[in-house]
Structures are given as C-alpha cells and as structure tokens.
C-alpha cells in the first residue's frame, strides 16, 4: 500500500479524475440514440460533492476545475459554466466539511442537498441571463431530486473507500483543526 502521504494523495486525486471520466464516458456510449425521457442523477456532481465531504484534502480546486471542465466539454454543455458553479459551491462546502465528519448524517445530507439545489438554480439563471437556451425545467428538477436522493448511497459507498485513518503510524502531527 502507499505509505507516503503525498503519493497517497496523488493516487486519490488521480482515481477521482479517472472515476469521473469513466462515468461520463459510459454515459456517452451509444446504446440508444433516440430522444429519451429517462434521466439519471448527475453522477459527476454527486461524486464530487461526496468526495468533498469525505476527503476535503484530496479535492483541490485545480482538480475539480479541470475534471469538470473536461466533463463540460465532453457533454456538450457551455464550457466552464457548470464547472465554475460546482467549484465555487464545492469550495464553500469544503470549508464546512470537517464539521460534518462525525456529525449527524441528516445534517450533512441537508447541507449537500442545498448545495445541489443552489448549483441547479444558479446554472438555470446563468443560462437565462446569458440568453442561452435553457433545459426543460421538469427534467432538470427531476435530475436534481435524483441526485439528492442518491447522495446517501454514494456517501455510504465512499465512506468505506475513503476512510481517513492515520496514514502511517509515525505520522505524529495529528491535532485539532484550528478554524
């Protein structure tokens, strides 16, 4: 296993990038090319927020920005807009992430839900303000709700994978976080 904390951090960052990229690529596989009303949660957003909650140290701004910019490019969205919104709200969440680590899960869920809602609202209004075609509001709403609904599952999955044990026994400088 990777014992060097720097290496481990880099490995986690790389795995976040690869995970999001793989999910987006699977979304674009041409299984059905006819218009469909089936819609899933925004998995890239979900994973980003879950990782921010569990490992705020891994989710550096540059990592989030570049990953989501690539997702924007691949998914034919206005480049930069969605990633900008998720980055800003994500950083807001990251400042508060530590307080939730041992807190009540419902509180954490409510926080993430409000972040997701903010993301979709700001995105919609940004599209309106810049005179871009907006997406069908009912479909967007459904996607936001699904994303919120999937957060507990995502959180449960990644809690195991991202557990924050002391990285190595001789790593002594563990202390209270000063905020």
């Amino acid at each position: 296993m990777l014992n060097d904390p720097v290496l481990k951090l880099a490995a986690l960052r790389l795995s976040y990038f690869v995970l999001v990229l793989l999910i987006v690529m699977f979304q674009t596989l041409p299984f059905s090319t006819s218009p469909t009303y089936f819609i899933g949660p925004d998995l890239a957003l979900l994973i980003t927020l879950t990782w921010i909650m569990h490992r705020p140290d891994v989710m550096a701004p540059a990592l989030i920005a570049l990953t989501l910019l690539l997702v924007d490019l691949v998914l034919q969205r206005p480049p930069g807009l969605w990633s900008l919104i998720v980055l800003s709200t994500g950083m807001f969440l990251r400042m508060r992430a530590d307080g939730f680590i041992e807190g009540i899960f419902l509180l954490e869920w409510a926080m993430v839900s409000s972040i997701i809602a903010t993301c979709y609202l700001v995105y919609h209004f940004a599209l309106l303000v810049t005179f871009l075609p907006t997406n069908d509001i009912s479909v967007v709403l459904l996607q936001a709700l699904l994303t919120v609904a999937c957060y507990p599952l995502s959180s449960w999955i990644f809690r195991r994978l991202l557990s924050r044990k002391p990285i190595s026994p001789n790593d002594k400088n563990t202390s209270r976080v000063v905020r």
């Binding site: 041409p30 090319t33 218009p35 034919q76």
Partner: peptide
C-alpha cells in the same frame, strides 16, 4: 461508425 452519443438527455448528438 457511431462512437458515442451526447450522454445527456438535453442534447441529441452522436459522435
């Protein structure tokens, strides 16, 4: 050959 579709329900494109 079709490589990919748009990946989102809001666009109808193929690659």
């Amino acid at each position: 050959v079709v490589l990919a579709d748009s990946g989102s329900p809001f666009r109808q494109t193929v690659l």
